[in-house]
Nucleic acid binder design. Structure first.
Lengths: 226, 226
DNA sequence: CAAAAGCAAGAGCACTGCTCTCGTTATGGC
DNA sequence: GCCATAACGAGAGCAGTGCTCTTGCTTTTG
């Protein structure tokens, strides 16, 4: 066990190192990650990398899972330092943006257009939900404590569906709360992608942080957070 | 002139056909478009394609410009059929979504993560602004006609900057109008990307159109459209 | 009519993901 | 401790990619 533990540990270290090198390549080359280049950087044959990752897609998947967890954990930590509901919400969303600004290519990997021919495996859906679950959690806590302001209820087919989703997380809570939380999450992603992908150029160049917060405050207001 | 016109016309037809074939490949293969495969499909040598497009990136640029114009034109036509301000806004945003659903890979090309190593040339920035200019135009018309509801003004560094942008399009209009219009545009892109890139899976599957409209109505309300 | 320019094809370069085979080394059952 | 087995790393090779260069041919132009 301890002997085989050596090999297992070396294997784990190699896997981590490959991911680290790949992440470095990601920041310069973007999503067209070259497995051969990674292997070259590590001084090993490209075929040897296939001992650790069955394909380039599998390596990408590992990077995607790491990225989801990194942004999720960052947001969770930031939210934990907040005091009020609105403060926790703003801290969480700012943390997501900060992480995205620091790791633009990883953001593109998880929230940009899907890599062509790449099919997200089951492993990714768990980590992928961390941020939206965090936002939903903040809203739920506020609602259960009776601190969510009144808003008009929603109607339409999506209301029923989101009502069923609400039963899982906030039993008894109105569907419009889930709808507003999801709207905030979607707006969050859109705002960050717009900033990173260059759509704010020539219109918002000085105070992008402020403009981002303006939008997030708007979503918080729609939710009813104070 | 008529003789050389023949060659010019053939050249234009070839260029269009290459773009058409490339667009067909786009719907199946996504963004990793193969110039060689396009050439094979047309029964010509890959080197011959370089007579019409200096590089694969240039072909992509042509497709991007076409996509921007297609979605922009669709939104403009839809807006023109609207009656009130809110109606025009909703029709325009729904038209953008409809186009995106019909052409998901082209949407990914223009609003998804930038193609690695690809630098958007000057040709694209004009067509790229059509949708946001359309939304801004709807808001401007409503404001100049005195039909925009009162909302709280905005503060912060981005307010000054957007105020300067406002002077170009809606002289005398408050910066918060531009901010709200841009927020709507950003939310629009985020909502469509979220739907196309699979982030709505398992939460909004039945009435996505309704959920989209809920979000857009929220933005219209923030703007003050009626 | 001849020179010039446009065009298509083929060969070739450097690169990619991935597979297969080959020796080598560490692991686990006896 | 021995030895079959499994893991490992390296190299060669295949099919594909973007792109360039050269070579003939055709069309346009002066």
């Amino acid at each position: 066990m301890s002997a085989s533990g050596v090999r297992a540990r070396v294997r784990a270290e190699m896997t981590e190192e490959i991911k680290a090198v790949a992440k470095r390549h990601l920041v310069t080359d973007g999503a067209n990650l070259s497995l051969r280049a990674v292997a070259r950087d590590m001084g090993m044959a490209s075929s040897a990398v296939y001992r650790y990752f069955a394909s380039r897609d599998e390596l990408l998947t590992a990077l995607i899972v790491d990225a989801y967890n990194a942004v999720g954990e960052g947001a969770e930590r930031a939210a934990a330092t907040g005091t009020g509901d609105l403060d926790r919400f703003l801290r969480a969303t700012h943390a997501v943006r900060d992480w995205a600004l620091a790791n633009p290519h990883e953001w593109a990997l998880i929230y940009g257009s899907p890599v062509p021919g790449y099919q997200a495996p089951q492993d990714t859906i768990g980590p992928a939900t961390r941020v939206i679950l965090l936002i939903a959690g903040i809203v739920r806590d506020a609602y259960l404590a009776g601190r969510v302001a009144e808003r008009e209820p929603i109607t339409g087919g999506y209301a029923d569906e989101l009502g069923r989703v609400a039963e899982q997380y906030t039993p008894g809570a109105p569907a419009r709360l889930v709808a507003a939380a999801m709207s905030a999450f979607i707006h969050l992603g859109g705002a960050i992608s717009a900033e990173l992908f260059g759509q704010l150029k020539n219109s918002v160049d000085e105070d992008r942080r402020g403009f981002f917060e303006y939008q997030m405050r708007g979503e918080a207001d729609r939710i009813g957070l104070t």
